[in-house]
C-alpha cells in the first residue's frame, strides 16, 4: 500500500456564496514533484493555503503522513513538517539575507528560543552561509533584504522554508515576477538546493514550459475543482485542460 505524505479528502472552501474549492481530493506520495496549474481564481492558492493552515477548509480533511492536520494553524503545521514559500516573498525587509536565514534556522533548531544565547552563534552562522551558498545567494548575505532584487527575494523565501528540513514544501508561483530568461535558472537552483533530500514538492506555476520541464505530476484546477491529474505529457494535452487552463484548445 502506498504511503502518502499528503492526503486531501473532499476539501471544500466557500467564502459566502463564492465556492473557492469543491471536493478537492489529492494524494501525494513521498518524493513526488507535483505542479498545480490553473487560471487565476481556479483554486490553486486556496488549496495551498488550506494545506498550510492559512485558511481553514469548510469541509473535508487533510492528513500529513496519515496524521490529521485539518484546521491546524500555520505554526502547528510548520512544526509537523509542511513549509511554504509565497507568491509575494514574505521576508523581513529590514534584516539582512543572512539574518532572515538565521531567524528561520534558530526557530527550527532551537524551538524554545534562548534569552541569552547569541543570535549569531557560530554553528548557525555556518549553516546559514552554507544554505545561502546552495541557493547562490552568499554574495547577498550581509545586504538588507529591502535592497535585494525580486528574483533573489524569491530564492531567499524558498531557502527560509527549507530551514526546517520539511517533509513537504509548497512553492506558490516560484518563478512569478522573474524574467523569462531567469526562470529556468531559478528552478534549477531551487531543485539543486533541494537535491539529496526526499523532499516532496508541490508548486503552483503558470508557465507550461516550466511545468513540462520540472514536474513529474500535474494537477489542473478549474473553478475550485480538479479537472485533470497525471503525468505532464497526459495532462497538458487533455482537452479540458487545453480549454480552461492553457488556453490553446485549437
Amino acid at each position: 500500500m502506498t504511503q502518502y505524505v499528503l492526503e486531501a479528502e473532499n476539501l471544500g472552501k466557500t467564502f459566502g456564496a463564492l465556492v473557492a474549492a469543491e471536493n478537492v481530493s489529492l494524494q501525494v506520495a513521498a518524493g513526488q514533484r507535483v505542479c498545480l496549474i490553473g487560471s487565476n481564481g481556479a483554486g490553486k492558492t486556496t488549496f495551498v493555503n488550506m494545506v498550510t493552515g492559512y485558511i481553514k477548509p469548510s469541509s473535508g480533511s487533510i492528513k500529513l503522513d496519515g496524521q490529521e492536520i485539518t484546521g491546524l494553524g500555520p505554526r502547528q503545521i510548520a512544526q509537523r513538517g509542511v513549509c511554504r514559500s509565497f507568491q509575494i516573498p514574505q521576508l523581513c525587509l529590514e534584516l539582512t539575507a543572512a539574518e532572515n536565514i538565521l531567524v528561520a534556522l534558530t526557530v527550527a533548531r532551537r524551538g524554545a528560543l534562548s534569552f541569552w544565547r547569541g543570535a549569531y552563534d557560530a554553528d548557525l552562522c555556518d549553516e546559514a552561509i552554507a544554505l545561502l551558498e546552495r541557493f547562490g545567494l552568499a554574495g547577498h548575505a550581509e545586504r538588507p533584504v529591502s535592497e535585494l532584487p525580486g528574483g533573489v527575494r524569491k530564492l531567499l523565501d524558498i531557502a527560509m522554508a527549507l530551514c526546517r528540513d520539511p517533509r513537504l514544501i509548497l512553492l506558490d508561483e516560484p518563478t512569478s515576477g522573474v524574467s523569462v530568461d531567469e526562470k529556468f535558472g531559478m528552478m534549477d537552483t531551487v531543485l539543486r538546493a533541494m537535491d539529496g533530500s526526499d523532499l516532496t514538492t508541490l508548486f503552483v506555476e503558470h508557465d507550461m514550459d516550466i511545468v513540462s520541464a520540472y514536474a513529474n505530476r500535474v494537477v489542473a484546477f478549474y473553478s475550485g475543482r480538479i479537472i485533470a491529474d497525471g503525468a505532464p505529457a497526459e495532462v497538458l494535452v487533455d482537452p479540458e485542460v487545453k480549454r480552461y487552463v492553457t488556453g490553446n484548445a485549437k
Binding site: 521576508l91 529590514e94 534584516l95 531567524v103 534558530t106 528560543l113 541569552w116 547569541g118 543570535a119 552563534d121
Partner: peptide
C-alpha cells in the same frame, strides 16, 4: 539573543 533577533523579525513580518 536569538529571541531578540526574533523580535526584529516579528516587527518586520
Amino acid at each position: 539573543s536569538s529571541r531578540g533577533l526574533l523580535s526584529l523579525a516579528i516587527r518586520d513580518n
